[in-house]
Amino acid sequence: MPSQVIVNADDFGLSAHTNAVILHAFQAGLISSATAMANMPAFAAACVLAQQPALKGRIGLHFNLTYGRPLSQAILAEARFCAPHGEFELKLKRRTLRLTRRERLAVEQELEAQWNRCLEHGVMPSHLDSHQHVHNIWPIGEIVARFARKQGVPVRLARNLGQNIGPLKKTFKALLNRRLRQLSGATADYVCTPLDLKAGLAPKQGVLEIVAHPSALGGHDFGDAYLATGESLKSLIDQRLAGLPRVGYTCLAAQPSALAAQT
């Protein structure tokens, strides 16, 4: 069993409803971390909620290159990132290994703009991950990891537990995660979804992040986008990871990942 678990809810700030569910999940002790989308309509409201004791210091940046309007200007001119009407429309293939210099600078500027919007709203992000896992695209991952090191915060690894990860994908993820660790300096050791946890894939050591998208089931119970309708995320985590402390990413900020330190 892992030594610690981070239960992170993505998409904070996406909508008022998402904000309400994430707040409730924090208050119920289900989740221990969340990441906010700085260019979404309910972001400012999410930052107000982030000042509550259960959330304070546990909100990261959910870097977004796929949905809504960017916060910077240069990326608007990049056809592989934005549509002519001024919204994100990412056209990079997942196997992309290079960006042009101009694209790279535009991504860096957008990342900085989203980070700064968090600071302007009183939230110092605890860590970095990305909407629809865009930092699993190699050159974007390098940008995000370098930026994370500069800011002194951890970055999410690519999902590395799962029954649907074949040999080629497993090799790619291992190489990418090695690079993310090398550049960022701090990560969890494993990343999985609630479905992976249900399949019995929890690691035997290290720090595990569970990527969650909680939904309300009524009362103090919650489902998740990865699970069947009506299935309880709370019951799943309580059963599979009974007794494990749920922590935020700030516990990793000053130290390398546990497994990386052993190699």
Rank of each mutant, 00 (worst) to 15 (best):
D11K: 01
D11W: 00
D11M: 05
D11T: 06
F12Y: 03
F12S: 08
F12R: 01
F12I: 11
G13Q: 12
G13C: 12
G13I: 08
G13R: 02
L14S: 03
S15E: 12
A16G: 15
H17P: 05
H17Q: 14
T18R: 15
T18N: 15
N19H: 09
N19D: 13
A20W: 00
A20H: 12
A20E: 13
I22P: 09
I22L: 13
L23W: 10
L23V: 11
H24T: 06
H24V: 08
H24E: 15
A25F: 07
F26C: 13
A28Q: 11
A28C: 09
G29P: 05
G29V: 10
G29R: 06
G29F: 06
L30I: 06
I31D: 07
S32P: 04
S32N: 06
S33N: 11
A34G: 05
A34P: 07
T35V: 08
T35C: 12
T35G: 11
N39S: 09
N39M: 05
M40V: 07
P41H: 02
P41T: 01
P41C: 02
A42W: 02
A42C: 11
A42K: 00
F43C: 09
F43A: 09
A44M: 05
A44T: 12
A44R: 08
A45F: 07
A45C: 04
A45D: 14
A46V: 10
A46S: 12
C47K: 00
C47W: 00
C47E: 01
V48T: 13
L49C: 09
A50T: 08
A50L: 11
